[in-house]
Amino acid sequence: MSSGDASQAVALLAGLELLTAVLLAWRGPASSPRGPLAVQGFALAGLVAVIGVAEGEPVLWLVALLVGVLKGVVLPTLVVRRPSRAAGPAAPPAADRPATVRPVVRPAVVRGRSRVPLLLGAAGLVVVAYLAARPVTRVVTGATGQALPVGFALVLVGFALLATGRRSQSQLVGFLVLDNGIATTAFLATGGVPLVVELGVSLDVLLVVLVLQVLGSRIDTAFGAGAPGGTDLDQLRELHD
């Protein structure tokens, strides 16, 4: 693979990541985030593989495989998984619940918010990312340098999703996009991350997602999941000592 081809491939895959991020920002509350997340994860894995080929480092292929499995398959599946009542310990019948916890019954169809402000915001964030990445792109030359602002953009868009997501699931999605952004930046800026580091980071992310998923399920069982994607987190704002 020549350096021109590698540059093209990197640009293509990075563009794919950015596109999926915008898709995730645009998606309505009813649609599943699984597909775009999986595509983003595979694109990231592809990016690692291309860098591995271009730099001639076989270890990076292993890293690519790890990233592909984790971010392309495991994490997207975990995010959309609903707590199955049959598999877990039997949920207490309604009569046994403490009187203070009242299940909130919400309509099945949630009126979605307008996605236009978020889309416009994402576009603005991408511009910000390109501006902010200038000092770095000046230093990092070669095939990967040109795509580096995409990593920044992913971080910013992911953070925006995290901050605006109303449900625990959309916040998880934002978190994963943020993490993908960090990983993309790391790979593009350094030309590959050592296997040990990548292993550690991946395990951390897996753990965080698992914990958040369990926490989200607990919240849903306590307050009742009226809508797809979990409880409206804006309702949980009472501070306690």
């Binding site: 964030l125 910000v128 501006l131 902010a132 990445a133 200038r134 000092p135 920044f152 910013l156 953070f159 925006a160 995290l162 901050a163 605006t164 997501g165 109303r166 916040q171 987190l233 804006d234 949980l236 704002r237 009472e238 501070l239």
Partner: peptide, 24 residues
């Protein structure tokens, strides 16, 4: 700080963007 997780995340997001802007 009103207890809303979104408010806290928005604060850190805004800080992050501002710091990024200053750094660049």
């Amino acid at each position: 700080h009103n207890g809303s997780v979104h408010r806290y995340l928005a604060w850190s997001f805004a800080t992050f963007v501002v710091v990024l802007g200053l750094a660049a």
